[in-house]
Structures are given as C-alpha cells and as structure tokens.
Design a protein around this nucleic acid. Sequence first.
DNA 1: TATATACGCAAGCATTTACTTGCGCAATAA
DNA 2: TTATTGCGCAAGTAAATGCTTGCGTATATA
Lengths: 111, 111
Amino acid sequence: MEARRDVFQAIADPTRREIIGMVAHQSLNVNSLAEKFDVSRQAVSLHVKILQECGLISIRQQGRERYCEAKLEGLGEVSQWIEQYKQFWMDKFDSLDKYLTKLQSEKKTDK
Amino acid sequence: MEARRDVFQAIADPTRREIIGMVAHQSLNVNSLAEKFDVSRQAVSLHVKILQECGLISIRQQGRERYCEAKLEGLGEVSQWIEQYKQFWMDKFDSLDKYLTKLQSEKKTDK
DNA sequence: TATATACGCAAGCATTTACTTGCGCAATAA
DNA sequence: TTATTGCGCAAGTAAATGCTTGCGTATATA
C-alpha cells in the first residue's frame, strides 16, 4: 500500500470520502474519527495518512493528539476535471437543478 | 475483478479518465480506442466494460463493431459531491480563476 | 513515578485490480 | 465460401489495496 496515490484515487474509497465529510465541518483527532467507523483505528489512521499525502487534509499536532483539518482546495483537481465535461451534459438538462432532481430520484435505490 | 464498482472508482483510474476524454469528443469503437493506448486491446476492453457498468459510457453495436459513447451525466454524482465542498474553499480564493492558476502552476511537476 | 491514552510503524493476509495471453465466434471482405 | 477483422470470455499473474494484530513511544493523568 505504498504507491503514490493521487486525489482521484483518494476519493475513490467511500470511507475516505466520509472522513473528508466529517473533517470538513470540524477538526477531529484520529481516535474520535476512528470511533465513528467499524474498522480499526489503524485502518482509519492509514486512510488519514493517505488523505494527508494527497493534500486533502492536514494534521495539526496538539500534544499527543493529531487533529485532522480538511483542505478542500485539494479537490480542485477533481473539480476542474469534472467541470470540463459539465457543460456537455448540462445542455441536455437545461439546468443543474433539473439534473440534481433527476439524480436524487435515481439515488433512491442506493443504501 | 468482479466487484460492483461505483463512479468514483471508475474515474480513479487514469486510463479510464483518458478513455472518457477521448470518447467525449467522438464515439470510438473498442479497437480504435485500444490503438491509442500502450496496453492490450483486452485491457482497454475491460476498462470500457467497467465504464459502461458505471453508466459513464454506452455501447452502440454496429455490425461487429461496438462504438463507445460518453454518457457524461454519469459524472453527476461526482460533480454533486464536489459541489458541496466547493464553496468551502472558493471563499479562500475569491475566484475560480485565481484558484485554477494556482493549480496550474502546481501541476508543472507532474508528468 | 506508575499507568493510561493517542498514535505511528510494521508484518501478515485476503481481495481486488490491472494486465496478459489464448481461444472462440460473429460480421465483413476477398 | 474462406479469410480476416472486431471483440468478448476466460484463466493466470503480479502488484496494489484495505484491514488486522502486535509493539513501541511520546504525552497526559493518577
């Protein structure tokens, strides 16, 4: 698990996306983050490390605790990539809202 | 290689992102797509299959050829996910342009 | 100072991934 | 009809991924 990962890879994992979501609202140290998941602290710790390496979060050491803070700008690369295609499909739907509504109704099958 | 993949996973692979990029401009059959890459036709064929399963491209069978057409709406899920965080970091940069410029200069180290 | 807490490092393991090669089959061209 | 071409379906393989279980080490707390 030592390959150089990029942001696209980082957000491919649902657990990591969740971590980003949680940290986006408030900084959390590794342990309290780990408590929210079913996997071990180690597993979460590793996800955190990966996210950090990709520049999606930063760590603020405070005593023996390490607080994770979201660096959402790191998503810019993905945003940019998506953006270039957005217009292509937006035309077909006239408006984003229309599209989102559609997406929402399709998503009802998930989870 | 049989797990149910989602869109985030699909675009995590650079080859698949390239395929999307190519197909976004014009439909291409599997073989002409494969010619553009260093990997075997089979490998590309598999990527195509994955992209299709994730709803990012659709296949139009025409004789013995299978044309891949981009279904960029499939990126909506990712777009939506990114969008929710975009405001968070946009504030810090005032404008998208400013941000993109920054990203660009950082990217000079890549490839 | 002794003990508990927060974490990272590292080794081990089952899957998944990305590819490859070989084979078979239907559609087209000779 | 007989090659040839386009492509999917395995089967096999090396590497990557996600996770776990020890173990070690600072930093707090009793």
